[in-house]
Design a protein around this nucleic acid. Structure first.
Length: 256
DNA sequence: TCAGTTGTTTATAT
DNA sequence: AATATAAACAACTG
């Protein structure tokens, strides 16, 4: 589930439900999900604090409070849930933040990703490491420049979080399909037109995906899960292959 | 039983 | 130096 658009929705979700409410207690049902702190330290750090407007960079959600910040990464199966009370809790709710008027739950089945605690902006920056500019914020020029300094195949470059933050496997496939570019094309051989299409389609994919509150229809994405994946544009059977170690779908006639 | 899964990090090879 | 590949992490589904 979580790619950049999903994390952006989590960001808005946290802002809508949790901002401003005093945190009364922190329940950790799986301490392994805390990557740089303990349940005790997390409780001490957050109790009595209130979330402020959260930030997102790539697939990271940075939830500032009037004290420290809580950093969320959702891995492949993370989710954020709001509950008015304890009913509806799930066994994969690894951390539950109880606050006035409800509770925020960090759910994560596979436990890739996790929660980090940062006491200030410097610490938050250290956790995020050398993350590139956010894929939705980056300008056309910088996108082009950063890509131009890379060699090799286009898809793994798009997914490199140091180059550009937020593009995952599904967004990459969708973008390349819409831009009609083969995921294995070498970056050096992309034309100016293709660079422009890539930038435009990346933004279009991210924006529609955020806007629809879920994965878009009439897309490669909708096809790949089905029994007979076909190109929504030309009807050709989609090809499935490994690119950069990830399952990749492409259209044999539209993408060259 | 086996293959597959939206992400990232690490080690190893080229 | 940078890119490519595979494995590991972990838990579940079909």
């Amino acid at each position: 589930m979580p790619e950049l658009p999903d994390v952006e929705r989590y960001r808005r979700f946290l802002a809508r439900h949790a901002v401003g409410r005093p945190i009364s207690s922190v329940r950790v049902t799986d301490r392994g999900i805390l990557r740089n702190t303990t349940p005790q330290a997390l409780g001490r750090a957050l109790r009595g604090r209130r979330f402020e407007d959260p930030d997102r960079q790539g697939k990271w959600l940075v939830a500032w409070t009037d004290g420290p910040a809580l950093l969320f990464h959702f891995g492949m199966t993370g989710d954020l849930i709001w509950g008015a009370g304890p009913e509806g809790r799930h066994r994969h709710d690894r951390v539950i933040l109880e606050m006035e008027g409800g509770e925020l739950r960090y759910r994560n089945m596979r436990k890739l990703g996790g929660l980090w605690l940062a006491h200030d902006a410097d610490e938050a920056g250290a956790v995020l490491g050398s993350l590139g500019p956010d894929a939705l914020e980056v300008g056309r020029r910088e996108f082009r420049d950063r890509l131009g300094r890379r060699r090799g195949r286009i898809k793994p470059a798009l997914m490199d979080q140091r180059l550009l933050a937020g593009v995952g496997n599904l967004v990459a496939d969708e973008t390349l399909w819409r831009a009609r570019i083969d995921p294995s094309r070498s970056i050096e051989r992309l034309t100016d037109t293709e660079h422009d299409r890539l930038y435009d389609e990346l933004r279009a994919v991210l924006r529609t995906w955020i806007g629809e509150g879920g994965e878009p229809r009439g897309s490669l994405l909708a096809e790949r899960a089905g029994p007979d994946p076909r190109c929504p544009r030309c009807g050709a059977a989609l090809l499935r292959a490994q690119v950069g170690g990830r399952t990749t779908y492409r259209c044999p006639t539209c993408q060259r």
